[in-house]
Amino acid sequence: MADLFATLWQTLNSGLPILLLHFVTTLVLLALGAALYMVITPFNERELIAQGNIAAGLALSGALVSITIPLAATLATNHIWLDIMLWGIIAILVQLLTVTIATVLFRGFRSAIEQGNIAIAAVLVGVQLAIALLNAGAMVG
């Protein structure tokens, strides 16, 4: 029994620091991606959400999930920290490009979100999630 506990302890001592490093790295990438998303969108998410704007909350939530999906795929398939960083940054850039293109294609996007248009926010979330799933699939494939 002592051997079992010694083995478990050794496994935790060697694996836990790596797990924490990779997890924290991915959390930092998620925060970076979310911050950049809020910089490139043509409206102020924080202000609109504070005012109770559901469309802005939905759009930001969709962005968070759509950034997280390829980051999770990167985290699950790479065991080297530098690979997680590199592919994580690429995943974020793809998602930011997606939202940039979507805001250009949807005329009046800013005013629609500011007016609380949930339909356009839902379409944006759908586009972001679709690209996120393809992005994640490409990264693991």
Results as ranks from 00 to 15, higher is better:
I54M: 11
G116Q: 11
E114D: 13
E45Y: 05
A102Y: 07
P70S: 07
L75W: 13
G62V: 06
A73N: 10
A76S: 14
I40Q: 03
G33R: 00
A122S: 15
A136E: 07
P70F: 04
L71W: 05
M85N: 08
Q95H: 05
Q51R: 14
T25N: 01
L93G: 05
L133W: 13
N78R: 15
V24G: 04
T100E: 00
W9N: 15
A55T: 06
Y37T: 07
L133V: 15
I89Y: 03
G116N: 11
R110A: 15
V65E: 09
S61K: 12
L29H: 00
A102T: 13
V127L: 07
L48P: 02
M139V: 12
L8T: 08
P70N: 11
L64T: 10
A138K: 05
A56S: 14
R110Q: 15
G88R: 03
V94W: 02
L20F: 06
V94H: 02
H22I: 00
L12T: 06
F109D: 00
V140T: 15
L97M: 09
V24F: 14
R110F: 10
G141Q: 11
A35D: 01
L129G: 12
A35Y: 04
G141I: 12
I67C: 02
L48T: 00
A136K: 10
L124T: 08
I92F: 00
I18L: 12
A35S: 04
N78H: 15
L36D: 03
W81D: 15
L48E: 05
T74I: 13
D3A: 10
A91P: 08
P70L: 07
V140F: 13
V123T: 13
A130K: 05
L8H: 07
L12Q: 09
T103K: 01
L105N: 02
I118M: 13
T74Y: 10
Y37M: 04
A130S: 14
A59N: 07
F43E: 03
I92Q: 02
Q115L: 12
I131M: 05
T68N: 07
V94R: 06
I90R: 02
G141P: 09
P17S: 01
A132N: 13
Y37G: 04
L82D: 12
A56F: 11
A2S: 10
L21P: 00
V94I: 13
A6C: 04
V94E: 01
L129C: 13
M1K: 07
M38Q: 07
V127G: 02
A72C: 11
L60W: 05
L48N: 00
L82C: 09
A63F: 06
N44Q: 14
I84F: 08
D3K: 11
T25F: 01
A59H: 06
M139L: 15
V140R: 15
I113M: 03
Q115C: 11
A121L: 08
G137N: 15
S111P: 02
A130W: 01
I118Y: 14
L93T: 01
L105W: 02
I69Q: 10
